[in-house]
């Protein structure tokens, strides 16, 4: 049985590799610079670094969907907002 039914494409593979790399980076980061304990940030939430990655990724998904729904492709504007969102989440939340 081949894997043709999974219908892999390079862009979707890159997407999953990016997520895997992000999670792996979190591990490396925590190993060299420990500091993953929860902290109280904006919105009054106690978040660990992993929580912040989760909030960033889910938030970015909605940002891209919102951009796609409102302005369509290309998604550069959405990417800029998502990066700003990631910066905000890791810095303040």
């Amino acid at each position: 049985m081949g894997l043709s039914w999974m219908a892999w494409t390079w862009p979707t593979a890159a997407f999953f590799l990016f997520i895997a790399a992000a999670i792996a980076t979190m591990g490396v980061w925590e190993y060299f610079v420990p500091g993953g304990a929860p902290r109280r940030g904006a919105f009054g939430l106690d978040t660990t670094r992993g929580d912040r990655l989760f909030i960033t990724l889910v938030g970015s998904a909605f940002i891209f969907l919102g951009w796609l729904g409102l302005f369509g492709t290309p998604l550069w504007g959405g990417l800029a907002i998502a990066l700003a969102w990631a910066g905000f989440v890791f810095w303040k939340v």
């Binding site: 039914w5 999974m6 219908a7 892999w8 494409t9 862009p11 979707t12 997407f15 999953f16």
Partner: peptide
């Protein structure tokens, strides 16, 4: 993953 692949 398969669903993501199908979606594009």
């Amino acid at each position: 993953m398969t669903v993501v692949n199908y979606s594009v």
